[in-house]
């Protein structure tokens, strides 16, 4: 039986809670968990190895009041639009998922593919870490492991403000070309664009629950975050608020 947690929070608290859940999972004291959350306010997270000033337009982010936080997971920069994106995180172990990292990305992202099927949208997993619709990216994921514990989190863009996303990130032309795109609009899409109507957050959360339940072949029951997880997250949160962490590269 999997646990489902649905919540919202600041960028710092969200990243801290994901990390706390990974640490607790490594100690094997918690159930495997699917967490669905939003960032309030909207925020940017960058990959662990990225140089913040090379990937984000810092001036524009500041003007828009969009905080920028470094993740513990690799990969690229992500715009978590408060009104158009739900972030998922899966905390589990290699008991459930392949010890092969690439294969485990596929297994977990299957939940997103099934979610999109709920809306009649045909999607596919594209290695290393993307889910695409018609060649356009609708979700990106990133994973970290500690021992046998796995944390994979990623985006689900149901109605992301793509023009704002395009302004936030310094995407080199070569990166777009590598994916057969000329502009950001050729490279990314949202569920709202694909179904031709405004999809609500509530619909998406329901569909994500069903999609991941199917992918994991397990019931997923709503439950709360444990006090120990919250306490640990509180201590970790300070890291995500620090210049030393966010600007370490």
């Amino acid at each position: 039986m999997w646990r489902l947690v649905v919540n919202e929070g600041t960028a710092e608290s969200n990243m801290a809670l994901d990390e706390a859940m990974l640490i607790m999972k490594e100690k094997k004291t918690t159930p495997s968990t699917l967490r669905l959350y939003t960032f309030t306010p909207s925020a940017v997270t960058i990959g662990y190895f990225q140089k913040i000033n090379e990937v984000v337009d810092l001036d524009f982010a500041r003007e828009e009041g969009i905080p920028i936080i470094r993740r513990i997971t690799g990969g690229g920069a992500v715009f978590h639009d408060e009104y158009g994106e739900i972030t998922y995180s899966v905390t589990s172990t290699t008991d459930y998922f392949s010890s092969d990292v690439q294969e485990s990305y596929r297994e977990i992202c299957r939940g997103l593919v099934y979610t999109l099927e709920e809306f009649g949208v045909k999607a596919k997993f594209e290695p290393i870490n993307d889910v695409t619709v018609g060649g356009k990216k609708i979700s990106g994921s990133a994973q970290i492991r500690r021992g046998r514990a796995i944390l994979q989190h990623g985006t689900f863009m149901y109605n992301t403000d793509i023009p704002k996303l395009g302004r936030l990130f310094k995407v080199p032309k070569e990166k777009l070309i590598a994916h057969g795109a000329n502009t950001i609009f050729d490279r990314v899409t949202t569920l709202t664009r694909e179904v031709g109507r405004t999809v609500t957050k509530e619909e998406v959360i329901d569909a994500l629950k069903r999609g991941f339940s199917k992918a994991f072949n397990s019931d997923i029951m709503v439950d709360r975050v444990l006090d120990e997880e919250l306490d640990l997250a509180k201590t970790i949160e300070e890291k995500y608020k620090s210049q030393a962490w966010n600007y370490r590269r």
Partner: peptide
């Protein structure tokens, strides 16, 4: 010595 990028590396 700085290595940067949007790749993944395990274990950290």
């Amino acid at each position: 010595f700085i290595i940067s990028g949007d790749f993944f590396a395990y274990p950290l």
